[in-house]
Design a protein around this nucleic acid. Structure first.
Lengths: 195, 195
DNA sequence: CATTGTTCATACCGAATGGTATAAACAATG
DNA sequence: CATTGTTTATACCATTCGGTATGAACAATG
């Protein structure tokens, strides 16, 4: 067997991710992708098969590398309230350092769910479901430790927190400044610490 | 002067709104619009000038007819907490009665702000700013009436409420069911009624 | 009835769309 | 060195894109 491959398929996928992330599926052309990925059209179709397949791979990889990894880290913190705060702080820091206002690839895609195939919808729902579960677990852990009032309803509060995270990420795309994002984080924490 | 016009330009705009609302600007083709608006291509360009001009008009009209009108009504309610609740209840009802998961045209567009021209960005920011102002006013009014604790910080809480509204609208596009939306509403009210 | 401006269907424009085909250049193995 | 599979560049495909042009049908005024 000769010469397995030359370009890094994961690095190329990451380049594609950036484009899909910023512009969305429909507004991204193959020309855009080829420009960004710096590989030839033939190589692209040989390696990924189609635009849609590339999108699926890009989304899945973003979900693993960015979203899931971050959540998994925080899940094993000792202080559950601090973990929730750290999650929001991380998103605010990301917004602060991003003049292009990319937001979150998963949430951008969630906004477009009615126009996406079922498999994409499933990926997005699982991803958001995992965030909600994180909130749920942290709340229950905080209640076990006496940090969070037992009167806080874990499931519904987790759903409310998810909506604030989603709102923060969307507003970070250009509609709100950093102070507003901090206000959202403070509101989220207030929801956790009061009954 | 002969025969000023025959089709209703506002009704045609509303048809266009539905398409832009569901698919977004880029993913909507002129063919889609002509199908939906049931007018000829020539008439469309004569009446609206361009795809972009039609989008601007559609967005502005949606903002006036749907968003601004609703807020203006609620603004003059006697009970400010009930007004906030009614706003969220209205959105949940809308989601319940909409199998197509349209969400909110303004918020869908807000998600796409980095790819929109400045004038669209301005429209969206004003629109969201007005919602935030509504929350702000209702909180202060509720505090004046003794319904809401004075320790609730009006400005930042208004921003937190906006993020929940935004999150609700986005999640209503297919990522969450009605019970989750109700949990978001309950969380929002909890933010208002607790310090 | 003539004028006027709108409607419609249709044809057209150049450019861009996602995707395929080709063939030479290339790098690693046997 | 021959083989093998990839990389590149380029040309090509039919279709669709946003937008324009045409001319006849049409409805209301003078």
């Amino acid at each position: 067997m000769p010469w397995e491959k030359t370009f890094d398929i994961d690095k190329a996928t990451d380049k594609a991710t950036e484009v899909f992330w910023k512009k969305g599926y429909e507004a991204t052309s193959m020309a855009d992708l080829i420009d960004a990925m710096q590989i030839n059209k033939g190589s692209l179709y040989n390696a990924f098969g189609s635009k849609k397949a590339l999108f699926d791979r890009a989304l899945a990889r973003y979900d693993q590398q960015n979203r899931a990894a971050k959540i998994a880290m925080l899940r094993q913190w000792d202080d559950p309230v601090a973990a929730i705060r750290a999650l929001f702080d991380g998103l605010i820091d990301e917004a602060r350092g991003d003049p292009r206002n990319m937001g979150c690839f998963i949430i951008n895609t969630a906004q477009d769910l009615p126009n996406q195939p079922p498999e994409v919808a499933e990926t997005v729902r699982q991803s958001l479901g995992d965030i909600e579960s994180f909130f749920h677990e942290m709340i229950e852990k905080g209640q076990a430790k006496g940090q969070i009032p037992a009167t806080v309803e874990a499931r519904t509060t987790a759903q409310a927190l998810l909506s604030m995270l989603v709102g923060l990420r969307l507003l970070a795309r250009g509609a709100a400044g950093i102070p507003a994002l901090e206000a959202i984080r403070d509101g989220a924490l207030r929801l956790v610490e009061n009954a």
